[in-house]
Amino acid sequence: MSAPPKPRLLATKPRAAKPSAARALQKGRQTKAAIVDAALGLATHIGLEGLSMGALAELMGMSKSGVFAHFGSREELQISVIREYHARFEQEVFYPALQAPRGVARLRALFERWMARTSVEIDSGCIYISGAVEFDDRPGPVRDALASSVRTWHAALKRAIVQCKECGELRADTDEEQMLFEIHGLILALHYEARFLQTPGSLTRALTGFDHILQRYGAKVPPMQVLPSPSTPKE
């Protein structure tokens, strides 16, 4: 009796992309990244709603249809900008702070780096804050992407607060949601006072406020020193 025929493969191994096609794909990704970078720069000054395909095309020296081809819609462009902003926020604030040990040291590192970034954004603008003003009452994918990014950051801060309790560096009855609310409130107040009202000493007051929060929840720590930033904050 002869052996049964071997089953035929359902799918063949995909062919490798031709060098020319691979180069074109890489160039397309680089162009899209450059457009997002330019769009992020614009959005920090004029807001997400200020973005337009036409303005970006002029800035990039491209046709409007060329910019549109990379995103398909203005909404997708705005979402791409939010994702890029969040990725940079994580690289500058979140990941470096993880080098600090769990507990108050890490929570302090998170806030110090947040403040260092905030001191720059006093001049340039913050997508999280300006975007919240623009989209607070406008449901849709852009608002969802923005809110998701902020919630992700808040979840990281909340975990750090919980770890402080687990390490015994904050009182066991500390309400982590309330503490997070108060810390976030300092950032919002700082932007309003320093960026809008241009109140002298706003950055120092925010730093002092953070120390007061720690002390109120049972932490015994020395006053912080703000990290140096690329630009001088308004005082």
Rank of each mutant, 00 (worst) to 15 (best):
S148Q: 13
M62A: 11
L59D: 08
G103P: 00
A22P: 01
M179Q: 08
T31G: 06
M115Y: 05
E84K: 10
F94H: 12
E166K: 10
K165G: 06
E235R: 11
F89R: 01
Y192I: 13
D123F: 09
P96K: 07
L51A: 00
D137Y: 12
E235H: 13
G140H: 03
V36W: 02
K158P: 02
Q215A: 15
R113D: 02
R117Y: 04
P96A: 07
V93W: 04
R143I: 01
L227W: 00
P223H: 09
E169M: 03
Q225W: 04
L146A: 01
L186S: 05
F71Y: 06
E177N: 11
S231T: 15
R205I: 03
C126D: 10
F94S: 11
Q30H: 12
P141L: 09
F94G: 00
A189L: 11
E49N: 01
E76Q: 15
S52R: 02
A194R: 02
D37R: 15
R216A: 14
V104G: 04
A194M: 06
V81D: 01
R205M: 10
I187E: 04
P228E: 11
K64N: 03
E134M: 04
A189E: 14
E92T: 08
S20I: 12
D144S: 14
G209C: 07
A219T: 03
A155F: 05
